[in-house]
């Protein structure tokens, strides 16, 4: 470990921006650049990727020699683990299972993100949310969702 001060947050930010820039530049290699007069689809993205890479590099460079005044702190791992899969699950099942069961399970998954949520309240909450949403969105606003999908035996 070096004793020199460095801003860990900014190092991570700079590296992240550079990585994203590199990714976009790599993806954009196959696109036609064109000329300044008639810019091809690859022109503007390439300019932006270059700019983002430079900005990332500057952020990274400036992070050294300066203490991190506000460390990253802890990550909401439990939140990430349960919140993010919720919409993905809804997307995967809303057609197959149908709106009602998909929403019920989605809410149940999301509710697990908090350590304070007990199983029974979670179940009650998911039931209430599902009933109300079905009434509002499916019956009330008339959104064209199948309430129960073809995966179910009913």
């Amino acid at each position: 470990m070096s004793t020199k001060p460095k801003d860990g947050t900014d190092i991570a930010a700079g590296l992240l921006f550079m990585a994203i820039a590199a990714f976009f530049a790599w993806q954009g290699l196959g696109l036609d650049m064109g000329t300044s007069l008639r810019m091809g689809p690859g022109y503007f993205p390439m300019v932006l990727s270059g700019l983002l890479f430079i900005l990332g590099a500057v952020i990274l460079f400036k992070a050294f020699g300066r203490p991190d005044d506000e460390p990253i702190g802890r990550f909401a791992w439990r939140g990430i683990l349960f919140i993010l899969p919720a919409p993905i699950f809804f997307g995967l099942t809303v057609r197959g299972l149908g709106f009602v069961p998909a929403l019920f399970i989605t809410t149940l998954i999301a509710s697990q993100a908090s350590m304070r949520m007990r199983p029974l309240p979670a179940l009650i909450l998911a039931i209430v949310v599902t009933i109300l949403s079905t009434l509002i969105f499916s019956y009330g606003l008339g959104l064209p969702f199948r309430r129960f999908g073809p995966w179910l035996p009913i």
Binding site: I83, A86, P87, F90, G91, L103, T106, T107, A110, S111, A113, S114, R116, M117, P121, A122, L125, A126, V129, T130, S133, F137, L143
Partner: peptide, 13 residues
């Protein structure tokens, strides 16, 4: 912890 599952459901829909 009661609010955010509701918000997640609303967002998904």
């Amino acid at each position: 912890y009661v609010l955010f599952p509701i918000i997640m459901a609303m967002c998904s829909i």
